[in-house]
């Protein structure tokens, strides 16, 4: 890892100005991806602005049928939260199945979303649940937040402060894990919401995305058998040593069916 200047601001405003004053700075949340990337020298920021000392960014609140999660809340805290378990059990279960126990004790929801790994779980959750991302500058709908591979709508110095999830009627996330990394080989999040069925897929292509064909089929007939008739295009599927395109495309349907069944 190359050297850097370290900052530990106590407020979001101080964090933004610390980053603004850096040549090539980065925000540090749980560090479970960024530090590994820096150790491999794939990233070498001039400055790290640690968000871990900002009390305003932590915590979970429930009001008016929606759950708001502070950006530096860890996966373990989301998984263990009685509020999240009560309002959106699928979200608590998803957080409890990220990485391993130690990663969950350090990794954060804001860090995961800002990184937007193509096989991460939270990007699928925000898309399927229709979450809103609040930053130090604005509010961003999930569908606008996810832009491309490791790319989000966030500006360079923008900080996620919280993520708000409207509680669905029911929801379930099913993940076929890559057993070494525990990232999703394919993960499918299905949510029945007031506005209809929403489906999001992660791990399958270069970026987490909605599944409009799956949504159309499930809006007509919310059953696992409805998934059978949907053609999942293989063209853009990820191909690596773990799985080919056809295999991944098939997994999308298998995980979608399991998620629909789990929704009840």
């Amino acid at each position: 890892m190359y050297g850097f200047d370290y900052h530990r601001p106590g407020s979001v405003a101080d964090a933004a100005s610390a980053l603004g004053g850096a040549d090539d700075g980065k925000y540090l949340a749980g560090g479970q991806t960024l530090l590994a990337t820096m150790k491999q020298r794939l990233a070498s920021p001039s400055d790290l602005v640690d968000l871990g000392g900002i009390a305003d960014l932590k915590g979970i609140t429930v009001s008016g049928g929606s759950v708001s999660i502070g950006a530096t809340t860890t996966h373990a805290e989301v998984a263990a939260s009685a509020d999240v378990q009560g309002a959106i059990p699928a979200l608590a279960a998803m957080a409890g199945d990220i990485g391993d126990r130690q990663v969950r004790n350090a990794g954060t929801i804001g860090g995961s979303l800002a990184n937007n790994d193509p096989a991460a779980d939270y990007p699928a959750a925000i898309l399927a649940l229709g979450a809103t991302i609040t930053t130090n500058k604005r509010q961003i709908a999930a569908d606008d937040f996810i832009v491309g591979m490791f790319e989000t709508a966030l500006e360079e110095d923008e900080i996620i402060t919280s993520v708000s999830f409207p509680a669905p009627t029911s929801a379930a996330y099913m993940k076929f894990k890559q057993p070494a990394s525990r990232f999703a080989l394919v993960g499918v999040f299905v949510a029945k919401t007031a506005g209809g069925v929403r489906v999001a897929v992660t791990g399958a292509t270069s970026v987490a995305h909605r599944g409009p064909k799956l949504e159309a089929a499930l809006n007509e007939n919310f059953s696992a058998s409805a998934v059978d008739g949907v053609q999942i295009p293989v063209d853009h599927m990820n191909v690596d040593i773990h799985a080919g395109a056809e295999y991944r495309a098939n997994l999308v349907k298998v995980m979608a069916k399991r998620a629909v069944e789990a929704c009840g």
């Binding site: 370290y6 530990r8 540090l28 560090g31 479970q32 530090l35 590994a36 790290l48 640690d50 871990g52 373990a76 391993d100 126990r101 130690q102 990663v103 004790n105 350090a106």
Partner: peptide, 21 residues
Amino acid sequence: GACVVHVNGKSVKSCSTLAVQ
């Protein structure tokens, strides 16, 4: 996980944590 320690009562991987954190 050979590097697991407890920080404020929670198990973390100390190879993926900065001392300054």
